[in-house]
Computed example of a mutant assay.
Amino acid sequence: MRWAPDVSLPVGLQRALCLALLLVWVLLLQACSAVRLAYSQVPQLAYWQLDRYLDLSDAQTDRVRSELDLLHQWHRSTMLPQHARLLQQVQQQLPATVTPDQACRIYDEVRIQLDAVWAQAEQQLLWLAPQLSPTQIRTLEVQQAQSNADWKKQWLDASPERMREQRYKQLLSRAETFYGTLDEPAREALRGYVARSAFDPQRSYAERLRRQKDLVGVLQSIAQDRSDHQRALGLLRGYRDRFNASPDLAYQRYAQRLVEEGCDAFARMHNAMTPAQRMQAVQSLKGYERDFWVLAAQ
């Protein structure tokens, strides 16, 4: 089973924290000049997400901001050079055709780096879990419910045809920002991936609910003995393990299939690109690599 994201920290914080690593990939969708500005805003974005989900107290806010600044400094000095070196490796592969296995190896490397971010964040923010009040845990549940309503509206309430069209348009937009306008062979490869995909909104939603319920239960259990930090750490790591490898073996197989499908789809689409489009992708990555080296040196 390939690595899955770790959310042993409260839901919502994970999204903001992973911005630091996902700048490598998500900001491929934006102008290169946006990278440095966006990176400087990561601690603030992380704080906003965490406060939104937990409604932090004044005392918690002060320490959270301090810890997020330290996490950001660590990421700048430790992880940005690793991200830049990974981009160098990818640049060397993109001018040629790629295999699904090569694509999955890149995916695995990204996840390994993300795991390092989670591990560091866990060390610096573990103190917060025992401090959460019952009211804050209820606030988390409310925010989860609101997020679930948005997810259902987008994926569960849509017809299968509309859902597939939504996925196609999203993926097309991302690919064209990276490669430029896609020719028909590449578009067909993308449409074929969406049409054949095993993505099942019902199954994904059920696992989403399981993870959320699991997290709330862990936080409630930690609250029963707030002084035992080793116990809290063990509970959070147990949750992380269950997130990375769901207790539902059928879901594990489903998740692995989605990863393999994605690797195959990327390879098919990339191989359908013209040499000029592949070089455009290389130049995009080169720009991010330069930005990461500059940021790491600051």
Rank of each mutant, 00 (worst) to 15 (best):
Q146R: 13
D55V: 04
R63D: 14
N271R: 11
H83F: 09
L172I: 12
F199T: 07
S40Y: 00
P100R: 07
R2P: 13
L140I: 07
D214S: 08
W74M: 03
L29Q: 15
Q256D: 08
Q73C: 11
S284C: 07
E67I: 04
S246Q: 04
Q120P: 01
V64F: 02
P160V: 08
L236T: 07
A198E: 05
E207C: 02
Q212K: 00
L80K: 10
L285H: 01
M1R: 09
G12N: 07
R240S: 11
L94F: 06
Y254N: 00
P130L: 04
E289R: 12
D291K: 01
P134S: 04
L22E: 15
A232N: 01
Q14P: 00
R187Q: 15
S133L: 06
V7W: 10
D55C: 08
A129Q: 14
S8H: 03
H83G: 11
A195P: 03
K169M: 04
L235H: 09
D62H: 02
L23G: 12
A255F: 04
N148R: 12
Y168D: 08
L27F: 15
W48D: 13
H72V: 06
S33R: 15
A250W: 00
Q136N: 09
A297G: 06
E109M: 02
D58M: 04
S221N: 09
W118M: 05
A267D: 07
L23K: 10
N244Q: 15
L295T: 09
W48H: 14
P10Q: 08
A195T: 13
R36H: 03
A145P: 05
A250Y: 04
Y47E: 03
Q30P: 00
I112F: 05
A272I: 12
P160N: 07
C18Y: 14
G234W: 02
P95S: 03
A119K: 05
Q120W: 04
L56S: 09
S246E: 11
Q212Y: 08
R278E: 06
G287Q: 07
V24A: 15
D115R: 14
E176I: 01
V64M: 05
A223E: 11
Y254R: 00
L87M: 06
Y47D: 06
D115T: 13
V24T: 14
H72E: 15
L233E: 12
A250H: 07
L23N: 12
P201C: 00
A96H: 10
D55E: 13
S204Y: 00
A4K: 14
P160L: 11
M273I: 11
N271Y: 01
H72N: 14
G238F: 03
A175L: 15
L190S: 08
N148G: 11
R111V: 06
P95N: 03
A195D: 10
